[in-house]
């Protein structure tokens, strides 16, 4: 069953004009942060969304949880269109859709007790009375490894380490037993030796609740570890999407292959697909395939027509001349 379905999602941010530009009524320009993205997340599935900074992956996540309004496109939660739901109806849905942010120093209120971060959502959604909420919060704190829960309940964020704070953020998202969770770079700021514990914790919740997740990360190694499927984004579009082993071992898009070539590893593979220059300007995209100026394989066609994301559920890609390689 599809928990989340996204169709032709777009988000354009207007570029601030200078006084002179207003004076000469220069045309309003847009940064095309997300420029037509479609995918589904099935029940119990972890979809990893990878890409470099500025590719639009975070904006996709924020639109899914309602923090950002799409410019165009539709978002369905269990076949119900939630794109423009507001107010009470939105809140009702929101209970089932949660987000974990990257920075555990910014996502907790420094004046609020740890416990209140977790009881708040329960009270807001009218799921529990004060006492029940407190009991549930303590249980949840212990579940995420903050033992004894009663002690952690009364602490303030500054008394916790980064790893412990991220556990609180996870507890806050999970206490509502959501059906869909967006984790936006949830381990990027966590120290190496503690990262594994957080990842294992997230995966254990996924198993236990049969949770569906969108795991947003810049780190392909993490994406591969946690994901059932991977979507690779470049400049606002998904360029490749498929089952983890398909995408990692048989990359079709030259961008995916370039990323794979650059990821450091203890057992580096002999994969050397190059890439030219720097990321293009998202305001002024090149004609044709938006990757063509950086692609070592670009041909005439690539400069004219923009490729569509085509293929099967198992593996699809947006490239006129897909690669035919296997990385063991």
């Amino acid at each position: 069953m599809e928990i989340i379905k996204v169709e032709g999602l777009k988000k354009y941010f207007p570029v601030q004009k200078s006084f002179l530009e207003v004076l000469f009524s220069k045309e309003l320009q847009f940064i095309k942060a997300v420029d037509g993205v479609s995918f589904t997340v099935k029940k119990g599935e972890m979809l990893s969304l990878v890409g470099e900074s500025g590719c639009g992956k975070t904006t996709v996540g924020r639109m899914l949880v309602g923090l950002e309004e799409p410019t165009e496109g539709r978002i369905y939660f269990k076949e119900r269109d939630i794109t423009s739901l507001r107010g009470e109806k939105r809140r009702e849905i929101q209970r089932h859709i949660q987000i974990i942010f990257q920075d555990p120093y910014a996502s907790l209120n420094p004046r609020m007790k740890i416990g209140e971060h977790i009881t708040d959502p329960l009270l807001i959604h009218g799921i529990a009375t004060n006492e029940e909420a407190k009991r549930m919060a303590i249980e949840m704190l212990e579940r995420v490894g903050l033992v004894p829960g009663e002690q952690f309940y009364n602490r303030l964020p500054y008394q916790l380490s980064g790893g412990q704070r991220q556990r609180v953020a996870i507890a806050r998202a999970m206490v509502l037993k959501p059906e869909f969770v967006v984790a936006d770079e949830a381990v990027s700021m966590i120290d190496v030796s503690l990262r594994a514990a957080i990842l294992n914790l997230l995966m254990s919740f996924k198993e236990e609740y049969n949770l569906s997740m969108l795991f947003i990360t810049h780190d392909l190694s993490v994406a591969k570890l946690v994901g059932d499927r991977i979507a690779v984004m470049y400049l606002g579009k998904i360029v490749e999407l498929g089952e983890v082993n398909e995408v990692i071992h048989k990359p079709k898009h030259p961008y995916t292959a370039a990323l794979l070539s650059a990821v450091p590893s203890f057992e580096k593979r002999d994969l050397r697909v190059g890439i030219f220059g720097d990321v293009s300007n998202p305001i002024d995209l090149p004609p044709g395939c938006r990757y063509n100026p950086r692609c070592p394989f670009a041909k005439d066609e690539c400069r004219k027509a923009e490729p569509e994301l085509i293929g099967t559920d198992r593996h699809s890609f947006a490239c006129h001349y897909p690669l035919d390689i296997v990385v063991e």
Partner: peptide
């Protein structure tokens, strides 16, 4: 050893192991 086993790696097929405790 613990650090090695806790790092996700693109090309190694393995689960990661959690290192207990804090620095």
């Amino acid at each position: 050893k613990g650090l090695l086993e806790s790092v996700p790696d693109l090309w190694l097929e393995r689960r990661i192991k959690t290192m207990p405790g804090l620095p």
